[in-house]
């Protein structure tokens, strides 16, 4: 199996990013941009903890611990 490196993974990420405007355009008649954005954010918040559980971490304590310890997380708001 091919060993994935940050660069090959980044190419996958870039491809995944590029699909976004195409789908946004296809569904724009039915769902607004804000609606699409909300669903995207919601999916990450709901399903990432699931991925973390699959990895073997205790999600609740993991994210709560990170909230207490990582002062940096409060700087993430500019992304919005």
């Amino acid at each position: 199996m091919m060993k994935h490196t940050p660069f090959s993974l980044m190419l996958i990420a870039v491809l995944a990013f590029s699909i976004n405007p195409i789908i946004a355009k296809i569904i724009s008649d039915e769902v607004s941009f804000m609606g699409t954005l909300l669903v995207r954010f919601l999916f990450v918040v709901l399903f990432l903890p699931l991925v973390v559980v699959l990895i073997g971490e205790n999600t609740f304590s993991f994210f709560l611990r990170s909230a207490k310890e990582d002062y940096c997380i409060f700087l993430y708001w500019p992304y919005f």
């Binding site: 993974l9 980044m10 995944a16 789908i23 946004a24 569904i27 999916f43 399903f47 990432l48 991925v51």
Partner: peptide, 22 residues
């Protein structure tokens, strides 16, 4: 398509982006 965008076009690339940043 919304579910597809949520998983493939958001969860996957942003997680990779964070990983690659290291």
């Amino acid at each position: 398509l919304l579910i597809f965008v949520g998983f493939v076009s958001t969860l996957l690339p942003y997680t990779i982006l964070n990983y690659a940043s290291k």
